[in-house]
Design a protein around this nucleic acid. Structure first.
Length: 139
DNA sequence: GCCAACGTTGGC
DNA sequence: GCCAACGTTGGC
C-alpha cells in the first residue's frame, strides 16, 4: 500500500480541524497542481499519509487515510482537477519537524526536502517507517 | 517581510 | 512551441 504526504497551512485547515471532521473525513479540494492531482488519482481507499503543517509548525503532526477515492472537483469547470476524501487516523505522539527531517541523512531524498512546494507528495516505505519511528509510532 | 523556486500564462 | 513575465508558495 502506497504512502503519501499532504501539506496544509494550519491557519487554513489544521490537524485539529481534520480530527474534528471525524470518520466521514473531508474532501481535500482546492488542489490546482497537475502533479498533486495525479498523485491523488493514483491513491487507493485505505492508503495512509502524513498530515504536514506548512508555514506555521512545519512538522508532520498526524496520520490520515484515504476514505474515498479521487473524484472530480465540482468547482473546476473542466473536471480536470479533483481530490480524494481524507480522514484522521491518529496523531503522532511526537511531531516530526522539518528541521529534524532535513537534518536526517536518510531523508535527504524526500520530496518534502527536494520539492517543498508540491502539496501532495509520495512517500517511500523507508521514509514512512523512519518518520513513524521518529514520531513515536509503530509503522 | 523577503526572496527563491516553481508553475502557469500569454506574446511572439 | 518557446520563453519571458508574472503569481503563488513556503522556508527562512
Amino acid at each position: 500500500m502506497a504512502h503519501w504526504l499532504y501539506k496544509s497551512e494550519p491557519g487554513v485547515w489544521s490537524w485539529d480541524a481534520q480530527v474534528a471532521a471525524g470518520a466521514a473525513g473531508t474532501y481535500w479540494d482546492g488542489v490546482r497542481n497537475h502533479l498533486a492531482n495525479a498523485h491523488m488519482k493514483a491513491m487507493a481507499v485505505g492508503d495512509r499519509g502524513f498530515f504536514y503543517h506548512s508555514n506555521e509548525g512545519k512538522a508532520v503532526v498526524g496520520i490520515v487515510e484515504v476514505a474515498a477515492a479521487w473524484a472530480p472537483d465540482p468547482a473546476d469547470p473542466k473536471g480536470t482537477f479533483g481530490a480524494v476524501t481524507l480522514r484522521a487516523v491518529e496523531p503522532l505522539p511526537r511531531p516530526v519537524g522539518l528541521v529534524e527531517i532535513k537534518a536526517d541523512l536518510r531523508l535527504t531524498e524526500m520530496v518534502l526536502v527536494k520539492n517543498s512546494r508540491l502539496s501532495v507528495q509520495p512517500v517511500t516505505d523507508d521514509e514512512w517507517r523512519l518518520i513513524c519511528d521518529l514520531g513515536g509510532l509503530a509503522p
